[in-house]
Design a protein around this nucleic acid. Structure first.
Lengths: 257, 257
DNA sequence: TCAAAAGTGTTATAAATACACCCATGC
DNA sequence: GCATGGGTGTATTTATAACACTTTTGA
């Protein structure tokens, strides 16, 4: 069981004392691994429920900065792209089960009361490239792991809704936000890229057409062939031409007139 | 100057006592009139600033229902489509000027304190068809009027940002949400419809291509000719085939593969 | 009969989509 | 040599977009 030292209690008390009550931020941090989207989830002490990590908005910081700070606390990374994907506020958004969990952990009553109220949460998503990022969560949670997006139905509260909304917005912003820089390693193959698109869009894609479309913008630069042994023909390696990639992004919708 | 009766004070005190602090909802209610988009704005007593009307989220209601309730209080209409367009939370979102205004109006200190804190606001937009809707605002505000979207730069706080974001989301959802039913009267002409699209998209549209595109889905039914005297050739009158219109809406994005 | 706005048609180009065929590799 | 996945080309259809021509009205 997680230890709640006096120091931990004090830091939690400080955090909530300078935060807006009943308002939280949840970050869905996507990465692409083993042909699927994954995101970190945390587990409260004494519980078998999993949830998306989050935090609170301090009185003296904007919600965007709060999201950034919380993301930094979780990943130690500072320059990630963050996008708001929605705000969620059904009346049953409170820690019913978690409260009984926490009660057994000698957490002071004032803290329990504060965190067990009904919360409105602002959802942000971001995208991670690094191979070995260790996710840190708040002291309330004992476990952290990466969850495959197919398993998001198992999450507590409405967190599976948050994840599916985050994925929807991610899909919509795939053509307008510079997400590939964050998703892909510096060197990658087009089949790998296609797997990413298929994971985000949740459908299969024609190989030839995908390739054509990706190469059309000239934002992929061929840098040779994959050296690792493959079972079949080794795919070509590419890297992003950052400038051309950024200028290939577009905001506008085709209306047909 | 607006009167603040004891009854008004009591109802305000009740409203805020059962609401989540530092969290508000702002509704941008669009209508299409005189070839432009308009939305209601309110003016605090003793002030020359204009702002978007809003309200607070009660402890026992979801944010969606809060938005609906507030919209009903403002329009007396119950069945409007409401879409969230974003949540705004910079640190300077508080009623600096308004507070001094309100201080002169014998509003109790507890209320002043509650409303003058820094607020995070959730933005919703909706769309109105009725010809003579009278907008009602909270007792804090003395004046209500419809503002043209071109004049939204004059709004207080970050409200001009809210309006422009609302319009952006409106434009994006024009092909996926059933907005025409709410925007247009039961009978309308294609040139009128084109003016609406031009107002929302902020650009001019080719007449022939617009027409072709609108008629392609078969969701417009010709019902004769406009009877009113026009200076030139009278345009054809249409009404929406609701079913075909709804089934012509689409969520999917063209990726090109 | 002319201007102005509505309605219709034509055409060139680009995009979306389906699918066939060849290539490189390991077994 | 054959199964497997990678890479390339072609063809059909549909959408986008520019613009020219015709119709109807009031003045």
């Amino acid at each position: 069981m997680t230890e709640f030292t006096q120091e931990t209690i004090n830091s939690i008390r400080k955090d909530i004392s300078e935060s807006i009550p009943q308002l939280s931020i949840n970050n869905v941090i996507f990465r692409f691994r083993e042909q699927t989207l994954q995101f970190p989830v945390v587990q409260p002490a004494n519980s078998n429920l999993w949830m998306i990590p989050g935090g609170y908005v301090h009185q003296n910081e904007s919600i965007d900065n709060a999201a950034k700070r919380i993301l930094f606390e979780q990943t130690q990374i500072n320059d990630l792209l963050l996008s708001q994907f929605g705000t969620f506020g059904s009346t049953d958004r409170h820690f019913e089960n978690q409260v009984s969990t926490f009660r057994n952990l000698e957490i002071p009553k004032d803290i329990i009361e504060w965190i067990s109220k009904r919360f409105v949460t602002i959802g942000y998503y971001s995208v991670l490239r690094g191979q070995n990022i260790e996710i840190k969560s708040s002291p309330f949670f004992k476990n952290v792991k990466w969850m495959n997006i197919e398993d998001s139905g198992k999450l507590a509260l409405d967190h599976s809704v948050l994840v599916s909304e985050a994925r929807k917005v991610l899909a919509k912003e795939l053509l307008s936000q510079p997400l590939l820089q964050s998703f892909m390693p510096t060197e990658f193959t087009i089949p790998e890229l296609q797997k990413l698109y298929e994971a985000i869009l949740g459908r299969s894609i024609d190989r030839g057409n995908f390739r054509k479309r990706m190469l059309k913008s000239n934002s992929l630069i061929k840098i040779g062939q994959q050296k690792e042994k493959t079972k079949q023909r080794p795919p070509d390696l590419y890297r992003l031409d950052k400038e051309k990639y950024l200028s290939s992004l577009t905001q506008d919708i085709k209306f047909g007139f």
